[in-house]
């Protein structure tokens, strides 16, 4: 009987898979420059996505992915300049507070912003008596932002910027001003001390909170990308330059 020294089929299959694996890595080697001079340096720029949240035109938070994969993250707080030094917030008064978005990457994106409002007690716990709807945002109109009213709650509003946001571009403002409804000043406790009547506001010392999150996604294959990243179905036009709810 002839002795079987080698399994021919497995060896062939193994060699084939090895070749396929090797072949998959050849592409980048081919792309390497084989000749260059000092005068003709070339740099390959890879696609990188980035987004920046702007408050009153200034960057407060950003996250950019660079060519080498490093993430650039910057984070600041909102509302730090809402009041002047020693200035008290007055219910009913409108304060400048504009939010917008900049594409800080090098590819076009679609963006949305989620705004969350709430009230806090002096000890930092959530105040359940005061409605977040008392924190009024003056939204802009005709600026390309569309609110998803089906996702809106007293605490949360979601806004989609309909046009594509090109690399480096900024959106118009989502909102211009913020205002605390003056009805919170209607709740007054009366204190009688002898012949003197004093008043104290019931909600003196409460704190309101505003949070904004901006999401960005690629424009290529936008419908599937948005569904995958944000979990919502949007309408995308044929050339993928505009979305709508």
């Amino acid at each position: 009987m002839k002795k079987k020294s080698f399994f021919l089929k497995p060896a062939l299959l193994l060699a084939a898979s090895g070749l396929l694996l090797l072949g998959s890595t050849v592409g980048s080697a081919r792309a390497a420059l084989t000749y260059y001079s000092d005068s003709y340096n070339a740099q390959m720029s890879l696609s990188s996505i980035g987004v920046t949240l702007l408050e009153n035109g200034e960057a407060v938070s950003k996250q950019d992915y660079k060519d080498n994969g490093v993430v650039s993250v910057g984070k600041g707080a909102l509302l730090t300049d809402l009041l002047g030094e020693k200035e008290n917030l007055i219910p009913g008064k409108k304060y400048n507070e504009s939010l917008s978005v900049q594409n800080s990457g090098n590819i076009d994106t679609f963006v949305r912003v989620i705004v969350t409002k709430s009230w806090l007690n002096a000890d930092g716990t959530t105040n359940q008596e005061l409605s977040p709807s008392l924190i009024e945002l003056q939204l802009t109109s005709g600026s390309g932002w569309q609110e998803d009213t089906t996702a809106a709650t007293p605490e949360r509003q979601v806004f989609y910027y309909q046009p594509l946001l090109a690399a480096g571009d900024k959106t118009p403002n989502i909102m211009d001003t913020i205002r605390i409804d003056n009805s919170i000043a209607d709740e007054v406790n009366v204190i009688r001390e002898g012949n003197t009547i004093k008043y104290e506001y019931k909600y003196d010392g409460c704190t309101f909170s505003l949070e904004a999150e901006v999401n960005a996604v690629q424009t290529h294959n936008a419908k599937d990308a948005i569904k995958s990243a944000w979990g919502v179905d949007v309408n995308v036009n044929a050339d993928e330059t505009r979305i709508s709810l």
Partner: peptide, 21 residues
């Protein structure tokens, strides 16, 4: 097949409401 370019940024702020007579 499942990799999309996405990113996000967020920020938060608070303001006390000091009211008094």
């Amino acid at each position: 097949a499942f990799a999309y370019f996405t990113t996000y940024a967020n920020s938060k702020g608070t303001v006390p409401v000091k009211m008094g007579f």
